[in-house]
Design a protein around this nucleic acid. Sequence first.
RNA 1: GCCGGUUUAGCUCAGCAGGUAGAGCAGCUGAUUUGUAAUCAGAAGGUCGCGGGUUCGAUUCCUGCAACCGGCACCA
Length: 648
Amino acid sequence: MSQISLSFPDGNSRDYPAGITAAEVAESIAPSLAKRAISANLDGRHIDLAWPIAESGAITINTMKDEAPALELIRHDFAHVMARAVQEIWPDVKVTIGPVRDHGWFYDFDRKEPFTPEDLGRIEAKMKEIIAARDPVRTEIWDRERAIAHYKGQNEPFKLELIDRIPEGEDVRMYWHGEWQDLCRGPHLQNTGQLPADAFRLTHVAGAYWLGDASRPMLQRIYGVAFRNKADLKAHLTMLEEAAKRDHRKLGREMELFHFQEEAPGMVFWHPNGWTIYRELEAYMRRRLTRAGYKEIKTPQVVDRILWEKSGHWEAYRENMFIVEVDEEGAKEKRTNALKPMNCPCHVQVYNQGLKSYRDLPLRLAEFGSCHRYESSGSMHGLMRVRGFVQDDAHIFCTEDQIEAECASFLDLLGSVYADLGFEKFDIKLSTRPETRVGSDEIWDKAETALEAAILKVRNDFEVDPGEGAFYGPKLDFKLTDAIGREWQCGTFQVDFNLPVRLDAEYIGEDGGKHRPVMLHRAILGSFERFIGILIENYSGKLPLWLAPRQVVVASIVSDADDYVRRVVDALRAAGLRAEADTRNEKINYKVREHSVGKVPAILAIGMKEVEAGTVSLRRLDSQGSRTLSLEEAVAELSAEAAPPDLR
RNA sequence: GCCGGUUUAGCUCAGCAGGUAGAGCAGCUGAUUUGUAAUCAGAAGGUCGCGGGUUCGAUUCCUGCAACCGGCACCA
């Protein structure tokens, strides 16, 4: 038998007979390591301990201390154990696939009756039994025919389809967990008893299409989470509770920001508090855009379908547009209009008025564009996905040579806006040319190179998504990370060679001839609605002073202080602060509690001491104590902090 | 749009194996004048999401629809 050489993380290497398993390698290093070993990495590939190693390479033995491989194995084995438990309880259930995902795994089943929450408890109990039985895990490689015959015998149509999809030449591997087996790529633990029976939980059941295809049958998906130990599971469950507390839908109601109602699904009714946030954010963006050389415009809500046919939207998105039919007087037919689902075609109309010269470029047209899209009923979600929304939209008309500079200055603006709004970290994704596209390869080369060069000026870590660009040009997407680590795609920067052609935009070049401008679609916030939802969740409702709807509440301790309270409120308002008086006949404890729960950033408590000394007692949200300041000091401190970040 | 669930007072939620509903908080009224996260008392508040059916009788059972929630699909 031939020899192979395996190198270890410490730099040493040793020769072994080919076909040795990772378990045997671990044993040869130290019996204690062999006991703790759970899997191995061979040249970066995660393999079973029992896997015969045929060729030389770099090997690392993994134990439960190695978080990434340990969690992958645990979660993957839990998926199998759960599927086994389900089939033991309901033998007629068909199994499909069960990958590791996020903090756990899911497994999709085909079963007529729906799984209920009570069923989850039953499955969990059965899983614990299986773990306690400590069944060994075995792997076998089958030939395709045998696997097909086996699953035909078992009447498992989904597994047959999966075998069909395994590429020719790849092994068909079967994993046995005791008497139960599953078609699987692996790797797995050596024994189901290695699973932490107290560190998993089945979380919920949901429908999911077979292979993610809406035209295929809907299966039932059971989700679970699992960790290496009970403490990690508990930490995760606590994190979920914390996330639920900052849900913008809940805070939106509690802080009286907005509401939704049945008669207008997906459309926001903004209340005074919520609309204050919106207006502050809009005013801020307007100042930033103006300073960055944008011209603001406003275009119609309702536009004849003829324009949408020209732009191509009618053909591609008609199903998702709100259609308005109008009986015009004397007309034979109804005229069909659509609420605009996006602003770009209208912006080209503004551009097209009057002849443009190369000297006019780049022309940056911005609009807080109110758009409507008929989103499918199941996709709406609070402010995060709505049918009526406003984009911080702009289109930059420029020459091909100007793409790089425009992209670079956009990146500056975007990074600065995100930082101002409290998001220091964001990721960039570059999506390049798809298979079906418009525009010559030369132009695509130019655009992709320009985008990449522009990003590289700001940073060198960005993800490339080949083939994921729009048919009309490459694009950048920007994902910001919030306070609890969730990612939100907000900004976008798209190069468009298509729409200027379809809508016939042109400019007169230095040579006196007509040329096509390039159109750059870009947004920073995405939509105001969604971004405000993200802000609320990021700050848990405790918005920075400049965005807080109610900035200061002045609360009297005794009614004899009421007159002074009103004078304090007047002084705060005169300094531009959003201040309210609370002179209700309640104890100060009650008022402090109520306004703290209502996320008011500053409370000024006024008793007779303050009245006599002309001072205020300032209590900041989440602080335990209070500070006594003169009225002038308090106004100065709060109004300085309430200035928007770009005006400080 | 698809699968499952939910819908009872302004909010959070009980309840009803069919005989038209109950709590806490909020709101209202009164008392209390209070020092930094809930003062006390009283009265009031609901066509039990909307429509149809079964029944002597439906908030409860059946059915259709809508909205919302959790996913899936979609997201120019």
